[in-house]
């Protein structure tokens, strides 16, 4: 009896969590949705909304932007953070701890504080409304350095020493000894970096104007500005935005959930 209630509860919960996604899809294939509440099974389903969407906005381009920006910023952050992590864990230089504190300090400043001066800086550099501006704040990640430094520190130093005896320098040790051994931490960080780039909204909103340079969250929000009541069009855009990240999430579920559980970041 109690088990039955438990199942009923979690199933009802799952319905509440998942049905809105189904509703997005249903709305997107119901022409004229928004004029009334769509039916659960549309009478006359159609892809008109997707056509309208693609006429109104270069949506495939926007999708591609989101993808390549997320991939590029993830790769950049992996490399730059892992290298700094190696420096902080393995190299000995004056001011190391002070510099690490500076890295940590940048972690505490939210994007909201940076957004105004960063926008002005981009304007001075003539980079407003460019890919470079979109990517700039996510080349390096202090959080990544912090996370990966722990991982590097846990690699047994004896392995470094063995490699040194074999004549390897630091770059070689980093590439062939440390990097492969911190792969689980790299995977965790990659997932978090990808998600944060994919979902990032405030910075693109501030720095991007042209539809061809927009990322999905920004494209969707301007789409909503254009089609305030044509919910089928807006939901068609949502469907296109959800599918890639949902597929990726289901494929890498273990890493995503571990990553979030470990770091507590979204």
């Amino acid at each position: 009896m109690r088990r039955a209630l438990l199942y009923l509860g979690v199933t009802a919960g799952a319905l509440v969590m998942l049905f809105p996604f189904a509703w997005t899809l249903i709305t997107s294939i119901t022409p004229g949705a928004g004029l009334g509440t769509p039916d659960l099974v549309p009478d006359d389903p159609g892809l008109d909304a997707y056509r309208t969407l693609l006429d109104a906005m270069p949506f495939w381009r926007i999708l591609a932007n989101s993808l390549w920006i997320a991939v590029a910023s993830t790769l950049l952050q992996l490399v730059t953070s892992a290298m700094a992590a190696y420096a902080f864990a393995r190299l000995n230089f004056p001011g190391r701890n002070a510099l690490f504190l500076v890295y940590l300090a940048t972690l505490m400043v939210p994007m909201q504080v940076l957004v105004v001066p960063l926008f002005i800086e981009m304007r001075e550099l003539n980079l407003v409304d460019t890919y470079a501006a979109l990517l700039a704040p996510s080349i390096a990640s202090a959080f990544g350095v912090f996370l990966l430094r722990q991982a590097v520190a846990q690699v047994p130093i004896e392995l470094d020493e063995a490699a040194t005896i074999d004549g390897a320098g630091h770059l070689r040790i980093f590439v062939s000894v440390v990097w492969p051994l911190i792969r689980p931490a790299l995977a965790t960080f990659a997932v978090l970096a990808f998600m944060s780039s994919w979902n990032s909204f405030l910075w693109p909103l501030v720095v991007i104007r042209s539809p061809e340079l927009m990322t999905l969250p920004l494209g969707l929000s301007t789409l909503h500005g254009q089609f305030t009541t044509e919910w089928d069009v807006v939901m068609a855009g949502s469907v296109i935005s959800i599918v890639p990240i949902a597929v990726l999430y289901l494929a890498a579920q273990k890493y995503v959930i571990q990553g979030v559980a470990r770091s507590g970041l979204k």
């Binding site: 969590m17 998942l18 809105p20 996604f21 509703w23 997005t24 998600m195 994919w198 979902n199 909204f201 999905l216 969250p217 920004l218 969707l220 929000s221 909503h224 807006v234 939901m235 949502s238 935005s241 959800i242 990240i245 949902a246 999430y249 995503v256 979030v260 979204k266």
Partner: peptide, 13 residues
């Protein structure tokens, strides 16, 4: 699933 979905998608939904 909603955690990995972007805020804009969720807010519009």
């Amino acid at each position: 699933l909603p955690v990995v979905t972007s805020w804009v998608v969720v807010a519009l939904l």
